[in-house]
Design a protein around this nucleic acid. Structure first.
Length: 347
DNA sequence: AGCCAGGTCTGCG
DNA sequence: CGCAGACATGGC
């Protein structure tokens, strides 16, 4: 844990041709340290992030001119590995165009509902507050232009988001790290690959709870790993299933409900029509729409999912990640319920 | 100290 | 369906 050594491994950056250059506007904080992946650690002293992709420790660093690049830390960059990084960072996709598309979709969605709610009786009863992070939508969204969706392996995503339920991001990262070091193949003195289903299937609930600190989720992960390991041939081919069928199968897994299933579809099977709705995305979306607060009737998540599918279509997943990051950075931690009355005074 | 967390599961009307 | 509680753990 605590590296007392003054300078652990000050590797000189590899020659440029031995790295994978990332797009000019790449934003590592949003992409690597947001809510989609849990294995990236930001260096406190340098513009560098270290993570694990497959069986490799990977660094993401910045050149003096500001560009970002990725390279494997402990081995040369083979053609196969270059392709793996290219795939992980989703470098075939044009996120600049996607950003412009999202700006357009979100703006028109906001305007549509603004007009809708202006005619609503709830609006005149309780007008929305003028101060909202969505007041200047274009400026808000421009801060997110470097956010990308990573193409992660599906089993790691399954485990990560079962762990994520009712949990904090820092603790999710810690748990995923312990699970990797405990059951994954070591690939460096300090790092390990994420365990295969077979490897994690050897875990006992007791170990999961008391070593990996997963709490009451021990039985979910225990049954999940054993189930996946036992039906591995099926899940290896699951990537070719249509999204509704795949969603149906995911919902049969222990610890996987509607929200986690959408996360696995999006981050693990790269289905961009998936739209996970958690408390943050829900709050951000309602605020964007200008939805009147209670006592006005509130929409169900099922309704919001249909709304998002209609508004964003094949970009729903990226729109969701935008909303999540907006909520995380611009909304207060908890939406206070009704003020009710002043707190009781101690006499 | 107490509340909350990228929810899910269970059991009830 | 919709709703209420429980649920381990640890950060803030």
């Amino acid at each position: 844990m605590s590296s007392a050594a003054p300078n652990p491994q000050r590797l000189t950056p590899p020659a440029l041709q031995n790295t994978v250059p990332l797009p000019a506007n790449f934003n590592p904080d949003l992409t690597l340290c947001g809510g989609q992946a849990f294995r990236w650690v930001k260096s406190p002293t340098q513009p560098t992030y270290q993570g694990v992709i497959g069986e490799q420790v990977v660094n993401v660093s910045q050149t003096s001119s500001g560009g970002w690049y990725a390279y494997p830390l402990t081995c040369p960059l083979t053609a196969t590995l270059r392709q793996q990084l290219w795939d992980y960072f989703d470098l075939d996709r044009d996120y600049v165009s996607l950003h412009h598309l999202l700006v357009e979709r979100l703006t028109s969605l906001q305007e549509h509902y603004r007009q809708h709610f202006q005619r609503s009786p709830w609006y005149t009863l309780q007008p929305p507050p003028p101060t909202s992070p969505f007041a200047n939508l274009f400026t808000l969204l421009s801060q997110l232009a470097g956010l990308r969706l990573l193409r992660q392996p599906w089993f790691e995503v399954m485990v990560s988001f079962v762990v994520s339920a009712n949990n904090h991001l820092p603790r999710i990262r810690q748990i995923i790290s312990i699970i990797s070091r405990t059951f994954g193949q070591p690939i460096s003195p300090t790092a390990a690959a994420f365990p295969t289903p077979a490897a994690l299937a050897t875990a006992t609930p007791t170990t999961l709870r008391h070593v990996c600190r997963v709490g009451y989720r021990d039985r979910y992960l225990y049954h999940l790993a054993r189930h996946i390991a036992r039906h591995l041939p099926f899940w290896e081919t699951a990537a070719s299933l249509p999204t509704p069928a795949l969603r149906h199968h995911l919902l049969t897994l222990p610890g996987v409900g509607p929200k986690v299933a959408e996360c696995i579809l999006l981050f693990g099977f790269h289905r961009w029509e998936a739209f996970p709705i958690d408390v943050w995305v829900r709050r951000a979306l309602l605020l964007l729409l200008g939805w009147p607060p209670p006592p006005a009737p509130q929409p169900t998540n099922r309704y919001l999912a249909a709304l998002a599918a209609d508004a964003f279509g094949p970009c729903a997943g990226l729109a969701q990640q935008y909303l999540f990051e907006i909520a995380r950075h611009h909304l207060p931690p908890k939406q206070k319920t009704s003020p009710k009355s002043s707190p009781p005074l101690k006499s």
